[in-house]
Design a protein around this nucleic acid. Structure first.
Lengths: 195, 195
DNA sequence: TATTGTTATACTCTATAACTATA
DNA sequence: TATAGTTATAGAGTATAACAATA
């Protein structure tokens, strides 16, 4: 095995398996997406919250924090920022006055629309070089793997290192039995809670 | 709509594109691999260094730090730990005495061998559910994407976090202990399955 | 003067644990 | 007593920059 070491590239044989490629491409995709989000002045978790609110408005901060994988204490400043920017709003729940109902504002809806556009572009950018058939082939295989690995759709534990100058991160996931809230008008281009 | 939904699964439509799946599966793969590495008392970057050293021994700390994507200042404590555990060693470069030549020790080679075994298992674990043909298909597609995205093989930037659980630091004094002249011949081939 | 290895400092980010107000 | 939201504190981890030795 030639272990000559001249250039800057990491020399020697490299891992080439699917697992490594997945990790590499996944980190790349997350990083690229985070960079695109900067245009909207959003971090991945922030984008994730907007998407979440579009899917099911009016939930409590604790629930949302759980979905985003952050402690409730951290969610406060997180939501403060977005509320200050007029993208979301807190409404007091009249029934249980301990709870807030978090909603998307009109402005938040506009930003979300842009977010989806960015997500769609990101999807194309990541799969460029593949034919339509190959793209479907790939997506199918990935979906099977994700299912096999028990990854629930919609949210994934975030990569860190996505320093888009603004803070924000997500990790950990608390899953429970499934039950969804069908809310119309949510196409969702792309963008996980933290991708 | 019911504000309080009992189910915790994020409601509403979810992103299903290849980009999202890549990020999700990539994070999952990295996390799973990191968990396996705990058995060897290694973090992903530590494993990465061992693999790097097997591929091309004797390089300078700066070079290695660059490959691992960490600032040279951080590499110092990073290497200190592995040297303390006897997995790597620093040898002074007689030609340019500013440089260290970092090498794998025999013990480090043994750990690397285990690391590769873990990597191979991880590869199987991540691709289970696919036929041999599908696995090759997937790997081929991923490799094309990685190439298209300009990702150089061997190292990826997803490294970070992953605490080393036990940290015996707080050594203010310089370590300046004797540098043992190591033995040449790190006969560790490479399989390259260490993410 | 430039570069390697190193140390020291400052800063960012985070979770943990109180504290309040409701229930 | 338990829970949602909040605040405050402390700790981990990081990069930045300064420094000494060598080129």
């Amino acid at each position: 095995m030639g272990t000559t070491n001249e250039g800057e590239r990491p020399p020697g044989p490299h891992p080439t398996g699917a697992a490594f490629l997945l990790a590499q491409l996944g980190a790349h995709a997350a990083k690229l997406f985070a960079e695109r989000l900067v245009e909207l002045d959003l971090t991945p978790p922030q984008g994730g919250l907007l998407r979440l609110l579009a899917g099911s408005p009016g939930r409590s901060q604790r629930e949302l924090a759980d979905d985003l994988g952050m402690p409730p204490s951290r969610f406060v400043a997180f939501a403060d920022e977005l509320e200050r920017r007029g993208l979301i709003e807190r409404r007091k729940n009249p029934v249980d006055r301990r709870l807030y109902a978090v909603h998307l504002t009109d402005e938040g809806g506009k930003v979300l629309a842009k977010l989806r556009k960015v997500g769609a572009e990101h999807e194309r950018r990541m799969t460029e070089g593949l034919s339509e058939e190959e793209r479907e082939q790939l997506t199918g295989l990935l979906r099977r793997l994700a299912d096999r690995q028990g990854l629930s759709p919609g949210v994934h534990p975030g990569f860190r290192s996505v320093r888009a100058e603004r803070s924000g991160r997500a990790e950990r996931s608390g899953r429970r039995a499934g039950h969804r809230e069908g809310v119309p008008g949510d196409g969702v281009g792309d963008g996980g809670s933290s991708m």
